[in-house]
Write a protein that binds this DNA or RNA. Structure first.
Lengths: 333, 333
DNA sequence: CCCGCTCTTGCAAGCGTGTGCAAAGGTTTC
DNA sequence: GAAACCTTTGCACACGCTTGCAAGAGCGGG
């Protein structure tokens, strides 16, 4: 029963009493078909349940309509919301997303990527923190368009979307100062993703600018549990920080929870915390975290719309501002 | 510069001094090629950077290696972790995932699905709560294999993975009883997903079994904010519940936060809460939620491995147990 | 030495499309 | 009425691959 499920253009043509080319042209935007034939073709197609075979179309046109999403730790709230936004925008643009999971850095990633290339994906959107350049190399070598989100890698022909991380870090610093904080710390993971490092550097720079010492601690992956460890390290220092800027909301949640439950500190009275990303959890009443919102939807929109624009030779930068969302984890505001 | 990027089997054949068929056979597992030719082909392929064009291969073989993931609310922690697990397992099986976002129930979903079908996806894995049968109809009609996760829809030829929701609900009920709770409530969203309804029904049934009344409240989508509203409704009742089983961890987080911060209740002293899914947030120290763990990885493994098995005509059921993870939101334990 | 067998290889026919080209048909212009 | 033009249509080839088929190569047995 499973054989011969799909109808081909040929069958539609026969039913409609036209040539196969006419069918093809009916489904090709901008092709020359009379209103009458188009109508008859559409009718026959409807009746037979015809869908253009995109494998064949991709083969001919040498463009598949496939966009691959290269992403690690996709179950992280920020990443997940970005994937969602991108997939929605791709769908609106009549493109389709292929998902490549780069969590394990072993050869399986390479295989998956090669697989995606084998499907002749037109473009790749990289939202993986992993700074593995060989991956993006492979994409470019395969003639794909490339969108890099929150990476500092510079590439001819690619679209690079970044946030003004340093500027945000400076704003966080100033917010802490306004709240009357004295001892400043930055809590980072040790993965060294460009955007995270930019936040750290921005915070350090603000410290230098205002002549205030900044303590920096780094540990583990960019997750809640690392926040716990970072808080334990920072809050047992001789001079206990009363302001912690976290590279990420997940870290911030870990820091807040640990400060409150393990060290019995009140936030924001004893300790001010600022995060980054504005994940959903930050708005939960246990956290009410003051944080910088990534313009997720605008990032997705920008990335997808760029894919439909004609290719330029040089790279293009797109810097966005992360707005500060005031909640309750910093005094004042 | 962009033209003529990909090398074809023909070019590899020329370089290796063999026929195009030999190249094809080299990359077809189980085909008949001598060790010598295989070596020479591989060498040439390596040198030229050849990848089999899966569009063409899919066209010939009438199977594409593409599996589409049909999912709504993919930024929800449970869904995101499931997507991650599935994509990893698919990659190991040398298949590739296409992502279909069914958040908006308008025509764009239909379009996206048709698009996936146009790529001749071999299978669909549905982890969308949305009970839109027309979607799965379309998949089956296109000869796809179908995996339904946490849906009660019954389908010939499909694999249906479900949890023993009712049994879990009964265990929750008993845990509440052991903790000495008197007044039982179930907090549900109003989307009516089968698995959520099964939990509700299981909890109700346990109430009948033990001769205890169960209050049920339903509201909104299955998210944190609904939990807030549900708690407000439940905790202002004349007889205030001291045990709330939530259909979902997100609801549970909303319920706990509201109970604590708005109603100044202590969990678990004044109120016991049990959730479902065991999302990451449940283990955060602000919640320490006792909950049922979905065996995410086993679900993914089961789904993917089934895709590689020969098709049987009748449907196949796979029921898994959700283990109770004891934390601190229920007394005793 | 020939037959039959196994293993390998090339040929060529497809898979379902898009599209250049030329022919056909229709309309306008002079 | 003819010429010039535009629109529409069908033919046929190309895209890169798989695979049935038959022919070739090698080899042992009778």
């Amino acid at each position: 029963m499973s054989q011969k499920i799909f109808v081909s253009a040929k069958e539609v043509a026969e039913r409609a009493g036209v040539s196969r080319s006419a069918v093809s042209r009916t489904f090709t935007p901008g092709a020359s078909v009379s209103e009458e034939t188009r109508r008859r073709v559409m009718e026959a197609a409807e009746a037979l349940g015809y869908h253009v075979n995109h494998l064949a179309r991709g083969l001919m046109r040498n463009e598949s309509g496939i966009v691959c999403l290269i992403v690690s730790e996709m179950d992280t709230p920020y990443r997940a919301s970005l994937i969602r936004a991108i997939s929605r925008h791709l769908q609106n643009a009549a493109k389709i997303a292929m998902l490549i999971n780069t969590d394990r850095s072993d050869r399986s990633v390479d295989e998956a990527l090669k697989l995606a290339i084998s499907y002749r994906a037109d473009a790749s959107i990289v939202l993986s923190g992993m700074p593995d350049k060989s991956i993006t190399d492979l994409c470019v070598k395969s003639g794909q368009r490339l969108v890099l989100i929150n990476r500092d890698e510079e590439r001819a022909g690619a679209l690079m979307i970044n946030l003004r991380d340093q500027e945000a870090a400076r704003r966080a610093f100033i917010a802490f100062q306004r709240a009357g904080c004295r001892s400043f710390a930055f809590a980072n993971s040790d993965v060294g993703t460009p955007s995270l490092m930019a936040r750290e550097e921005g915070f350090r720079a603000a410290g230098r600018e205002f002549g205030i010492d900044v303590t920096v601690e780094r540990f583990g992956p960019t997750r809640y549990q690392s926040g716990v460890v970072l808080a334990q390290r920072l809050l047992t220092r001789e001079v206990r920080p009363d302001a912690i800027f976290c590279a990420n909301d997940l870290l911030a949640c870990g820091v807040m929870d640990t400060a409150r439950h393990q060290f019995k500190l009140a936030v924001p009275d004893d300790l001010c915390v600022v995060g980054f990303d504005d994940i959903e959890q930050s708005s939960w009443s246990s956290y009410q975290l003051t944080t910088f919102a990534q313009p997720v939807d605008r990032i997705a929109e920008e990335a997808v719309s760029w894919l439909s624009q004609p290719m330029t030779d040089d790279g293009q930068f797109c810097r966005m501002t992360a707005d500060l969302v005031w909640r309750e984890s910093v005094r004042g505001g």
